[in-house]
Simulated scan of single mutants.
Amino acid sequence: MATLQTKSAARLMMAPAVIALLIWMIVPLSMTLYFSTLNYNLFNPAQTPFIGLTNYRFFLTDPAFFTALTNTLKLVAGVLAITVTGGILLALLLDQDFYGVNIVRLLVIAPFFVMPTVAALVWKNMMMNPVYGTIGQFLNWIGIGAIDWFSAYPLTSIVIIVAWQWLPFATLILLTALQSLSEDQKEAAEMDGAGPVSVFWHITLPHMARAITVVILIQTIFLLSIFAEIYVTTSGGPGLQTTNLTYLVYSQALLQFDVGGASAGGIVAVVLANIVAFFLVRIIGKNLDA
């Protein structure tokens, strides 16, 4: 009886927070769903006739949608490849005992705390500028010649900027997992004649599998909504080469003033993100159970 009363009291105490969270989520989603069924243009906000699913049909058949979806997938895949691979290598390096390791760890983690807009401005003006950027001056110095990154390789440039921001996060998670690995296992393998590559492949990497899965899950959820880096550097261009789903929705709402179409695009983006999150959660759940 006391246990039931305790559970009831706990649920009663949690109820306000749960209700507030539901309102916080459901009200904006409901408004977006409502606007997506209207012909709502900011040039004529007084006339918003109901048009049903027409906005969804136009959005899903727009060639820009498929380009934005492809760019989104390329952006996520490219950043994950760099951050996971680089995170593993940096975690292995920072797990060693050398002079100044704590300072190095702090410097490696620092980029994660830089605001996306600031990071994009720094890379655009100080690193990738073909005239006075650090990378351009270095390429000129070695005789290759400066590259106008945002014109020649726009999507690659965005991938580099975003990966630079998220690499510290991956390194921190993977380093934490690596430090929980028992040294006895590695010493036993080395005594049996296993080399460094074999120890890494058969002991270290399997031990880091769960952490790698967590990194992929968390980063994917956030990378699907990358916006500031694109807005500051390329504005979705040249053409549509760096337009992802987030920027496409923004351009329809605030550049084309089509609130109805942008709302439909937002719902489509939410559905796609939830589908990706669903499969990732299932994958990480299987890994954790294993």
Score class of each variant (00 low, 15 high):
2 A>S: 14
4 L>C: 04
6 T>N: 10
8 S>E: 10
9 A>N: 06
11 R>W: 14
14 M>Q: 14
22 L>C: 14
23 I>W: 09
25 M>Y: 04
26 I>K: 06
34 Y>M: 11
38 L>Q: 15
39 N>W: 08
39 N>E: 15
41 N>V: 08
45 P>F: 11
48 T>C: 05
57 R>H: 07
62 D>I: 03
63 P>M: 03
64 A>E: 14
68 A>C: 05
73 L>M: 13
76 V>G: 05
77 A>F: 10
79 V>F: 00
81 A>R: 01
82 I>M: 09
84 V>Y: 04
87 G>E: 02
90 L>I: 03
93 L>Y: 08
97 D>F: 04
99 Y>Q: 10
102 N>H: 10
103 I>E: 12
104 V>N: 05
104 V>L: 14
105 R>P: 08
122 V>T: 12
127 M>R: 03
127 M>H: 02
129 N>Q: 11
130 P>V: 01
132 Y>M: 11
140 N>F: 05
141 W>C: 01
144 I>P: 02
148 D>G: 07
148 D>W: 00
148 D>A: 13
149 W>Y: 03
154 P>W: 00
155 L>C: 06
158 I>G: 06
162 V>S: 01
165 Q>G: 08
170 A>M: 12
170 A>L: 08
174 L>D: 03
175 L>E: 07
175 L>H: 10
178 L>V: 03
183 E>P: 08
187 E>L: 14
188 A>L: 14
189 A>Q: 09
192 D>R: 14
197 V>T: 11
203 I>D: 04
204 T>W: 09
208 M>F: 07
216 I>L: 10
226 I>K: 03
226 I>R: 01
229 E>V: 09
231 Y>C: 00
235 S>V: 05
235 S>P: 01
237 G>K: 07
238 P>N: 13
252 Q>V: 00
254 L>T: 10
260 G>V: 12
265 G>T: 07
266 G>V: 03
270 V>P: 01
275 I>W: 04
282 R>F: 11
283 I>D: 14
287 N>V: 15
290 A>D: 10
